[in-house]
Structure formats: structure tokens, C-alpha cells
């Protein structure tokens, strides 16, 4: 197994998860607690990476990050290196393609927080930020854990988008999933087998952990029936 690829994959997944959680909390809170007639459109946009072929998503990201785009040009002139086919470009692509995996479990958890508690918080003088941090998030701990685990796992398993945006640059953009593809292309089946086996075991562990976390909900047991914590796994 390619240790560089493993290290790169873990670094990418960890950074993606941190960024995604920071983004997912306000996005999920907004979708859950600020429902308007246009909310379904926003939910659809967030969920889009689930249904779009990775090649299509990858294509648009490539166009958006490429040297011809305003973002790509600004990045190159500011940091002196192009965004496409770089680790940073890959990070942006991962964040976008894993967004629904981070937002959805949290959204489900937020919507199951009893409205009454949110209203109690409001009448006690708290604004939305305080209500979310002090009431909604603590009651959505297992949803938050699911979000983080799925965001991490999905980034590790991402292939199409990474191939489109990152290419296959060792130490830069070659992740484990690309490494398997590359090994098969080069008829190196033993390397492909070990990396694949690693990813298989890893994924199984991640999902088992998620289900266990969901089962042993963070809410005290007596309340488990009145405040159901949803088991949400998208794939």
C-alpha cells in the first residue's frame, strides 16, 4: 500500500471534516429552524452532490477552479500556484462533494429537537446562535457524530470528483481510491488488493461506529423515547 497516498487521504479527510462540520452546523440550523417557501430549493442544492454523477460535479468544479475562472485566477495571483490539480483544489472539491453527508444527519437531528425547547430558549432571551449552541447541538450529539463520521468516510471513499479535479499527482492529489485505480491500470493486482482490503475494513469499522453511536444516544436513556435520535445513513 502506498503510504504517501494513505497519509494524503487521511489529511484530506480530516481537513474536509473539520471544514464541513463548521459549515454544516449553520447550514443545517438554517434549513431546520428558518423554514420558508424556498427552503426545499436550498435543501435540493445541498443534496445535489448525492445524485449528480461525480464526473459532472468534477467537471463543474474543474471549470470553477481552473486557471480560466475568476476564482482560479485570483488564487494563482494571490498564492502563486494554480488551484486545480493541487491539494487545496482537492480540499474545496471534497468539501462540496461531501456536503450532503455532513448536513443531512445534523438536519434530521435538529428537526427532531422539540420545538417547545427552542421556544423556551427564545422566551428566556436567547438568540438563535445561543439556542443552537446550548440547546439544539447538545441534543443532537449523535447526529453531529454521524455527520462527522460520514463526512470523513465519504471523503476517504471519493473517487470520481478527485480524479476530475486533482488528477493523479503522487503526494499532491493521489488518494487511496485513485491509487487502487492506478494499480489496476498498471496490472499491479496485489497492491490493488491490499489497498482495497484496507478501505473495505475501514469503511465497515466507520459504519459500525456510527450505528453504535446512534444506538447509545447521547441523551439520557429515560428521554430516549421522548426525544428520538434518528439513525441517518444516506448510502
Amino acid at each position: 500500500m502506498d503510504i504517501d497516498a494513505l497519509w494524503l487521504t487521511l489529511r484530506l479527510a480530516a481537513l474536509t471534516t473539520v471544514i464541513l462540520i463548521a459549515l454544516a452546523i449553520p447550514i443545517a440550523a438554517w434549513l431546520a429552524f428558518h423554514r420558508r417557501f424556498y427552503t426545499p430549493v436550498l435543501e435540493a442544492i445541498v443534496a445535489l452532490p448525492l445524485v449528480l454523477p461525480p464526473t459532472v460535479l468534477g467537471y463543474y468544479l474543474l471549470v470553477a477552479l481552473g486557471s480560466q475562472s475568476p476564482l482560479g485566477q485570483w488564487w494563482t495571483s494571490t498564492f502563486g500556484s494554480p488551484l486545480a490539480f493541487s491539494f487545496n483544489g482537492l480540499l474545496i472539491a471534497s468539501v462540496i462533494s461531501s456536503l450532503p453527508f455532513a448536513v443531512h444527519p445534523l438536519l434530521t437531528a435538529f428537526t427532531s429537537v422539540p420545538t417547545k425547547l427552542l421556544q423556551a430558549s427564545t422566551t428566556l432571551g436567547a438568540g438563535w446562535p445561543r439556542t443552537i449552541v446550548k440547546v439544539a447541538l447538545p441534543l443532537s450529539r449523535s447526529g453531529l457524530a454521524t455527520s462527522a463520521v460520514l463526512a470523513f468516510a465519504h471523503t476517504v471513499g471519493e473517487f470520481g470528483v478527485i480524479l476530475m479535479v486533482g488528477g493523479n499527482i503522487p503526494g499532491q492529489t493521489r488518494t487511496l481510491s485513485i491509487d487502487v485505480y492506478d494499480s489496476v491500470q498498471a496490472f499491479d493486482y496485489s497492491s490493488a488488493a491490499s489497498t482495497s482490503a484496507f478501505l473495505l475494513v475501514f469503511s465497515l469499522l466507520v459504519l459500525t461506529t456510527t450505528y453504535t453511536l446512534n444506538y447509545r444516544s447521547s441523551v439520557p436513556r429515560q428521554l430516549a423515547s421522548s426525544y428520538p435520535q434518528p439513525v441517518t445513513v444516506i448510502q
Binding site: 422566551t123 432571551g125 447538545p138 441523551v219
Partner: peptide, 28 residues
């Protein structure tokens, strides 16, 4: 609601289950 300076008591208390009694009382 948060600026009306009112105390609302719900039918079934609506205490925050993730906090202690004192944290509940201190919340507002």
C-alpha cells in the same frame, strides 16, 4: 419573543434535558 422580557411557563415545563437544574434556572 427574546426581547419581550416575559417569563413563559409551558404546559409540560419544557426544561432543557441536557442541562442540570441550576443550569436551567440560570439560562435566562
Amino acid at each position: 419573543a427574546r426581547k419581550r422580557d416575559i417569563g413563559l411557563l409551558f404546559q409540560d415545563h419544557a426544561l432543557f434535558p441536557n442541562m442540570s437544574v441550576e443550569e436551567n434556572v440560570a439560562y435566562g
